[in-house]
Amino acid sequence: MPEIDEVLPKYLRISGYIRDRIERGELVPGDEVPSERELAAQWKVARPTAAKALNTLRQQGIVESRRGSGTYVSERPVLREQAPQYGSAYAEHASVTVLEATLLTAPDHVAEVLGLPRGSAVLMRKRLTGNGSRATEVVTSWFAGELAELAPRLLRAERLPGGTLRYLESVTDRRVSYLRDQLAARLATADERRHLALARPAAVLVYQLTLHAAGGAVIQLDEVVHPPEKWTFQHEYSRSS
């Protein structure tokens, strides 16, 4: 059983795990998903909890039940909404300054996310974006160090037309299959306070995005730091959502 955030109810952890397997292509349309009995045994939960996990996926249109047969991945599963263009593909009018593009020893958390041994070399690109005269975010992208030879422009302190991801896909055979994101709040570092013109101390919102290949390997890790008192990630929902 995978290690998944213990804060979530177990039925959501189970449904999320199955959903991730479908998004990674491990389960394809028409494949049978584990039964209530199998999920209850695998996750050490009661049958009603396993049933609730499968029902959550049914309500989302991801799986469907066949009477007397089992539960199967829908022919057209409704997965994540199409992700926006990412990989620092900023609007043309946005101000983007590449602060740093270099090879260095991976911080422990970066090595862990990228699936690299501790102490591995990684490629880091740090950019500062702005809107008019005000800096709006600090973006740091991390890549495996082996990409330095395959994608040398990642080491240039210049804006890449179309963004880092489009460039990376154009010069390698790596393709992004799915994305995963998460948010956290923390105190800004001295470097972040300087770039974003923040007082000391200042809280910031950190948006972490991982871009995965079909097999699950992380191609790119982005960490976006937003200053306080700035609304972001606006979404609109219909009443039926």
Rank of each mutant, 00 (worst) to 15 (best):
I18C: 10
D31S: 12
I219G: 01
A83T: 11
G163W: 04
S133D: 15
R239V: 13
H212T: 04
T172V: 11
A214C: 07
V204K: 01
E223Q: 14
H195W: 14
R13I: 14
E149P: 00
Q59K: 15
L104Y: 01
A91S: 09
P84D: 03
Y178G: 05
V206R: 09
R180E: 13
V113P: 01
D222H: 01
V110E: 08
A53C: 10
A121V: 15
A213N: 13
R125Q: 07
G25C: 11
R67W: 05
F233P: 00
E236R: 13
S88T: 11
G87R: 03
S120M: 01
A91F: 06
G132L: 05
P117T: 07
A111S: 11
Q234H: 09
A190W: 04
E23P: 05
V98D: 00
S241W: 12
V63D: 06
S15E: 08
E137W: 00
E146M: 01
Q59H: 09
Q234Y: 10
V113M: 04
L79K: 02
R24F: 02
R134Q: 12
V96N: 04
L155K: 01
G216R: 03
L183T: 13
P107L: 09
S240W: 12
T140W: 04
Q234F: 10
R159L: 01
P29W: 03
Y178D: 10
E112M: 03
V78K: 10
Y207A: 14
E146N: 04
S95G: 15
A144E: 14
G216T: 07
D173M: 01
T129W: 02
A157D: 08
L128N: 10
R166A: 15
R186S: 07
L160H: 08
H212Q: 07
L57W: 07
L54Q: 05
Y237A: 12
G30V: 06
A197W: 00
T189C: 00
R166K: 14
V139T: 14
V63H: 04
P29D: 04
G162T: 10
E112K: 08
P9R: 15
P227A: 05
A89V: 13
V138P: 07
R239Y: 10
A151G: 10
L114H: 05
R58K: 15
V110T: 10
P34C: 03
R47C: 01
A184G: 12
S241M: 06
V206L: 08
K230V: 13
